[in-house]
Design a protein around this nucleic acid. Sequence first.
DNA 1: CCTCAAATCACCCGTTTTCGCGATGGCGCG
DNA 2: CGCGCCATCGCGAAAACGGGTGATTTGAGG
Lengths: 211, 211
Amino acid sequence: MIRVAIFEDNIHLRDTLRVLLDTAEGFSCTGSYPGCEDMLVSLREIPCDVVLMDIEMTGMNGIEATRLIRQHFPAVQVLIQTAFFDDNYIFNAICAGASGYVLKTTSPAGYLEAISDVKNGGSSMSPGVARRMLELFRDKMIPALPADYQLTAREKDILKMLVKGKSYKMIAADLYISLDTVKTHIRNVYAKLHVNSGTEAVAKAIRDGLV
Amino acid sequence: MIRVAIFEDNIHLRDTLRVLLDTAEGFSCTGSYPGCEDMLVSLREIPCDVVLMDIEMTGMNGIEATRLIRQHFPAVQVLIQTAFFDDNYIFNAICAGASGYVLKTTSPAGYLEAISDVKNGGSSMSPGVARRMLELFRDKMIPALPADYQLTAREKDILKMLVKGKSYKMIAADLYISLDTVKTHIRNVYAKLHVNSGTEAVAKAIRDGLV
DNA sequence: CCTCAAATCACCCGTTTTCGCGATGGCGCG
DNA sequence: CGCGCCATCGCGAAAACGGGTGATTTGAGG
């Protein structure tokens, strides 16, 4: 039996969901609320496995509510439901600890499956949301690859040590080469990165993922 | 009618999938291959909407194949299928441009739904994969929390300019203060960041999001 | 064999940083 | 009002850095 609490300010949808859960096999609704007042108290007094959380509610934001729930009841899974397909909503909901994200256009059977999925340690997202999420993931992850200045292996070595905060002298000692050689390499690096100081080079190296 | 090409080295599963697709309403299998030899040629000669791609195959890796497909046929959606639940697989598959990721434990109906989802511009993932993906997303996104050394507003100003690669003299000029004042501030910044050179300070500032 | 890029080292010179110590004025707070 | 914190400024010396020029060796490749 999966125990579900509902937070949804639209009375119509709220009641629909409550009936759905109460009639469905293996589900029960432990409470349905129009807002997040006393949310933590309610959840403490009436335990549940999954929270169905609307984002757009008067009073506390569903995202913040999610964060609070995850802080205070790590075992409770939060399934976001919203009418809107919004990048920031998706992004923030995930960061707040949501385990799933379904649109309100989802079918009753879809709702039940999503709830069941998150209860069983999985996640569920509407296909469109999942797609957007993959794209966000790609966009945020990938930029760390390219950026190729034509640095030689040795130059990269020296640049890395510079990034670590080493002085010329330390670099020379660590690599068993002379101070003048270090200077030469660094001068070449500066030329290739089009910078003319160590701080600039370090900033560029880190930002462009040459670390 | 959704046209699907199958890449799967296990002959049993490959044939099962082919039959599934050929018998299912609204689906057709345009080809099934045990490996990625001549993959691009096949796809060019026999257009399809969705590619079902196994990761573990002899010869070319499914991830690399996905990257190639996305490069040459951006309109073709790739749905990854694999027996293994592996972080690197998930991560790399997404970065390679996969639109979905299902486990081989998925039911026939689940396969068809997943294919249909990706064809319609959505994404589909097995619940466990979706969960892992959300966690990866959180872990990679969240570290953007700014560490807090007790820098004063002025010190942050100067640090930012240092990160931009400005020299003491330029900072002094830009902020309309004397060179000696800049020195003092920077000395204080170094002390608070526990560093003792500009390069170290810049590296720490960028990495810790003090930009 | 010859060429070229890369890596190594050297010397010179002026500028920039780093860091010690000290000082003044403003501002909020009990 | 005094106290602490911050921002501002100053001096001086040692260390580090930036930039110019040039040289040697080595290994890959035509």
